[in-house]
Write a protein that binds this DNA or RNA. Structure first.
Lengths: 347, 347
DNA sequence: GCGGTTAACTTAAGCGGTTAACAAGCCTTT
DNA sequence: AAAGGCTTGTTAACCGCTTAAGTTAACCGC
């Protein structure tokens, strides 16, 4: 008969390889039930001293709750899903970074996903995040008018940033006043004497007409200037190609209004190739105020929507929605601020 | 006694509010066990016809497996955690977008997290992702020499991109040949006649000395030029402030070598403020080749590491590691390619 | 006609937590 | 002194899926 010394099985205190400590182990260590430990660690239902004892044991054993198990049981995580419509766009990159930081400051993890400009994928990823039990979804949509949003907004709080979502059941919206922005840019250009303006809008596969296009047409008609809408991929290289064609044309417009600073950079590149001077030979206006825009020569005249405020407000709305707080203004309309710099001049 | 009509409980076929269909429901609908359905949906162990029957029922009921439950039971997800050391850096933004796209093309979701330049947070987030059961972790680290990486690499495949991780147990590395990059930039500047160069390195809170600093000193000594290392935050505004001080100094260096294009943009901004011409008055070299760099005036001379190849290789290594494939080269050293443009000139 | 495979399922035990419901002990009330 | 109310725990049923092990029944060679 084997003596005590040869007893099989694990010696106490011997760490198991590659295995985290579980709730049950903490329970055994303290002589409590798993339920008691679970409550204790969340500071509910138990006496001060038990809580202390459990905390100590947990710390000693290096216990950390498994987020997956917790998510399955409770249906909650401490994560926010952040869905970027198109991370190719430099401004969205900035936005995502800012939002991530903002949420992290509030001790919530941001899971960032990129739909790559594809509306179908966008909804697929939104569902994926919903299934991941993120506590809320913060989205800067490619296709805000998709049918699918309603179903998603039913399952969890959704905050939209940038464009207004088709469903009214969002937990909040921080959106651009696109009409005001477009009006002010076109009025500004008109004031500088421009009468023919090319408008570069981001192409997005199978996205329906965006209201922005309508705003442009309306403003143009009202002011009495000719605005030609030209769709263009966000990517700088492709934007350059499109811009090149534009500038090489027989009678190019005197000004190019770009729906994102990314696109404006393409125009700068094309202008440089064609030995045209931005400002003197062609006026350019952007729409985002990316940090780099002020570094260009000439600095890009653009519309500043206040990125950091947008990120902060979006994060605030999201957190409020998760915590079930009521907020006064669920729909925040960002006013455009023209950043007049050197790229648009009197003609 | 109540009649059949008043029977309580749910009527069959009545959709439950806000509740997804579960595996059990599909099992009941087909008259099989949940196990059989589980197998069938993954095409294992079952007859062709049963599989077909299950698929049809699942489709009809709109069944989709719950990823959380699946992760808990199987320990796997189809997601890759992507950890950015500092999303403030424009180049990392580009990298993350490219990696995300690359992985998505291979039908895997990329969960992007941002450590915001904080080494502690970086490890914390890495653990968080591990706990989320991501199948692999792809990281562009702030502090590659941290102790903690070993523990993480033990639990799941880790692929490093940018800087080499302290642990040897990575599943792969796609790293810059920093020494070669630094050598070639300094040699290039030396060749142009520069003898005093300021080197702008990203500050990172509580990160130990990076080997890059050593490379700079060694190369400088070898060439016989004076290189002054100046730490600087990645953010453009702050970089501008630092650069301003640099350019205003009594005897500024003739060239500024920036460890990232973001930093170089700061120098451009400061130069513009001081009415200095980049190129003529001060030479600037970057280190990333961000798309915008070629749009600046003058276009930024920089080091191109081949972002898209990096992203593709990193994704490839990651996927290979997940699928347990052996790869020939686990450590890919990216060679620097100087993109000579106009910002660095003969002095 | 009998042990031995094999195909096709079923059973049931988890994965690691959460949480409703219940129980025991002690303190008030009336 | 019995009834009610807290406080502090415990029990056990999930959450929705995976998977090792077990069960049938058909098939096979000899």
């Amino acid at each position: 008969m084997p003596t005590m010394w040869t007893c099989p099985g694990r010696l106490p205190g011997m760490a198991r390889p590659n295995k985290r400590t579980t709730l049950r182990e903490v329970a055994e260590a303290t002589g409590l039930s798993t339920a008691a430990v679970s409550y204790a660690l969340r500071g509910k239902h138990v006496s001060k001293e038990t809580e202390e004892r459990v905390r100590k044991a947990a710390a000693e054993l290096g216990y950390e709750a498994d987020p997956i198990a917790r998510a399955l049981a409770s249906g909650r995580t401490s994560m926010v899903g952040v869905l970027a419509g198109d991370l190719q766009d430099l401004w969205q990159q900035q936005l995502m970074a800012a939002i991530g930081r903002e949420l992290l400051a509030g001790d919530r993890y941001a899971l960032i996903l990129d739909a790559g400009g594809d509306p179908d994928r966008e909804l697929k990823l939104a569902k994926q995040l919903r299934d991941q039990r993120v506590d809320a979804l913060l989205v800067s949509p490619v296709n805000p008018s998709a049918e699918g949003w309603a179903a998603i907004a039913d399952a969890l709080p959704v905050v939209a940033v940038g464009d207004s979502l088709s469903t009214a059941r969002t937990a909040g919206q921080v959106i651009f006043d696109n009409r005001a922005g477009i009006d002010s840019v076109l009025e500004y250009l008109y004031g500088l004497g421009h009468r023919r303006v090319t408008v570069l809008t981001p192409t997005r596969p199978s996205t329906p007409d965006r209201p922005a296009d309508v705003y442009v047409r309306e403003a143009a008609e009202r002011l009495g200037l000719r605005a030609e809408l030209v769709p263009c991929p966000q990517e700088l290289g492709e934007a350059t190609v499109v811009a090149r064609r534009l500038l090489d044309g027989p009678r190019p417009a005197t000004a190019v209004f770009c729906f994102s600073d990314s696109l404006a950079y393409g125009v700068y590149a094309a202008a440089a190739e064609a030995s045209l001077s931005v400002g003197r030979d062609v006026s350019v206006v952007g729409f985002d105020d990316h940090p780099v825009s002020r570094v260009l020569t000439p600095p890009l005249t653009t519309v500043d929507w206040g990125l950091s405020e947008i990120a902060a407000e979006a994060a605030r709305l999201t957190v409020a929605a998760i915590e079930g707080k009521r907020v006064r203004k669920k729909r925040i309309l960002c006013a455009p601020r023209m950043s007049e710099r050197g790229s648009a001049v009197r003609v």
